[in-house]
């Protein structure tokens, strides 16, 4: 590998690390929201769903006992389960 190219790559990596560190250590920027709803939407977008939920769901779904099936016409028209 070309030593000059390697040096540039190393420098780029260091810069990237510094940038990431800055992003982590700098306080988050100020925000202004025009309404309660706008603020709640921002908060909702910033809220991450724990990945554990989908794993638990997969497990729970597998453990569900098979229930008696309703005929297709009853599923469409409604009515009591057998």
């Amino acid at each position: 590998m070309n030593p000059q190219k390697k040096s540039i790559t190393h420098q780029q990596a260091e810069e990237q690390q510094l940038s990431q560190h800055d992003q982590q250590t700098q306080p988050s920027s100020a925000h202004e929201f025009a309404s309660v709803e706008e603020m709640l939407r921002h908060d909702a977008r910033d809220t991450h769903v724990p990945p554990a939920i989908v794993r638990r769901l997969e497990q729970s779904v597998r453990q569900l006992p098979p229930s008696p099936r309703r005929p297709w016409w009853r599923r469409i028209l409604g009515g009591p389960r057998p």
């Binding site: 100020a30 929201f33 910033d46």
Partner: peptide, 9 residues
């Protein structure tokens, strides 16, 4: 609504 620290929002 002005929020300085969105971390605390």
């Amino acid at each position: 609504f002005r929020v300085l620290e969105t971390k605390e929002l």
